[in-house]
């Protein structure tokens, strides 16, 4: 490997690291916004930011299919439905509950969480690190994911799909007209 190539590789990694920190920061900010915004609509909006930056993180890990699916399913369909429902509820400013002791709760929460966070930080630091590897071109592509899903994980996959069907039937039963045919 020539010197120029090594420098190029280092630049690539640096670029990837910046992207990683940017996306990770965005996803954490979105999650904080989800909790702290008063209006549910703003909360949902910041959740969208989290989901999209998670999709970016998947793309950085070269899981291309997961990136596209995250955008289509979560950022597109599911968030559209959630926002749709929030819009239907038509929540006005005066419908929102008063949050009087908000500062106090934040302070108490911080006191509780800080030792846990420090502890977690120590644990993560003590884990043995591993070098990042360049993986093959096919990784995370439709064909590879499909093959693994339908060869090694066929039964769990089918069970999950039945679970979704059960949820669907349950929703229809719950939403159906009461007392008809009795």
């Amino acid at each position: 490997m020539t010197k120029k190539n090594i420098r190029k590789g280092a630049l690539d990694i640096m670029f990837a690291e910046w992207l990683f920190f940017g996306l990770a920061g965005l996803s954490v900010l979105g999650a904080i916004g989800l909790i702290l915004f008063r209006h549910p609509m703003n909360g949902a909006m910041s959740f969208v930011v989290t989901l999209i930056s998670l999709a970016g993180l998947y793309a950085l890990l070269s899981a291309k299919l997961l990136f596209a699916v995250q955008l289509i399913v979560y950022a597109g369909a599911i968030m559209s439905l959630i926002i749709f429902i929030i819009m239907f509820l038509n929540i006005q400013e005066h419908d929102l509950p008063d949050e009087e002791g908000k500062g106090l709760f934040l302070l108490g929460g911080a006191v509780v969480i800080t030792p846990i966070a420090l502890f977690l930080y120590k644990i993560v630091k003590s884990l043995p690190g591993s070098d990042t590897k360049i993986i093959g071109n096919g990784f995370g592509d439709v064909r590879e994911v499909g093959l693994i899903l339908f060869k090694n994980w066929l039964l769990p996959f089918e069970i999950v799909s039945i679970l979704l069907l059960v949820a669907l039937v349950g929703a229809v039963v719950l939403a159906g007209k009461k007392g008809v045919g009795k």
Partner: peptide, 19 residues
């Protein structure tokens, strides 16, 4: 390789802008 999925992914974000 996932060109067609990407187009639908971007389209779904575009749909949210109307909301």
């Amino acid at each position: 390789h996932i060109g067609i999925l990407l187009i639908f992914a971007f389209a779904s974000i575009g749909g949210m802008s109307l909301l």
